[in-house]
Amino acid sequence: MSGRKRTLEAISFELVMTVIAVIALVIIIAPSLVVLIVSFTSGFSLRFPPPGYSLRWYAELWNAWQLHFAAKNSLIVALWATGLSVALGVAAALAISRSRTLSARLLDSLFMSPLVLPALAFGLAALMLFSLVGLPVSPLTLVIGHTVVCVPYVVRNTVAALAQLEPTLLESSAVLGASRLYTFRRIVLPLIRPGIIAGAFIAFMSSFDNVPVSLFLRDAATDMLPIRMWQDLEGKLDVTIAALSGVLIIATVALVAVMERVTGLSRRLTN
């Protein structure tokens, strides 16, 4: 009797947990699928399901020069911000990763703080500082602002990769007479490269998608894609934006697939 009660009890638990989990997974994935489907509509509205299917809005996208311009700006800023983040972030990660000193821990908290602090407040602060020193908004100010909010991803992933590095490898290399630079190039760098690439990838994506910092640090000449999309959506519900969303979703899926192969991205983010 008690045995049967326990199995019923166990089944009820497993059932509830599984059902909620499946509902949650559907909620996570559904919006992207819906946008993908709607982007192929032949109609003029975002009706779901669409009245018919066509590629007209993707063709429309071809001529949307404002979006092209914004996409180009976003891409350039994201590439520069990622490059700068990697250069500064990897060096800093090397310095703080194996150190237990107070200064290392303080620096670690400092470098991570842009992740939790409201980015909009930082955007405003950066704008005020740049205008105080007389630096007009430009791609340069955007790159600087984006680097501040993107560098934590590089630092975090590089520190994680360094933490898994066997110290004996470095000692052996030194005992065998290798210089520090040689050891770094031939031992350390190859082993932490996947971590650096994963961090750089996340930094790139978050710069490309950044709104709060760009909002303050751009002007008409440096329009950024997410802001252009946001302002288009505030005004009217444009199906062209659905097509652009389709392109972005497919590009993201492709990039994540590549990154999963190259760096084992999913393992990295759950360890």
Binding site: S32, V34, L46, D209, P226, M229, I241, A242, S245, V253
Partner: peptide
Amino acid sequence: IIILIVLLPLLTSVVVRTFAWIVILGRQGI
């Protein structure tokens, strides 16, 4: 598969994800 389902939205543009909810919740939405 679960990890990728969870991960994909994190890396998809926030504007795109929000836009999807407009399509779902709107007057003519799903």
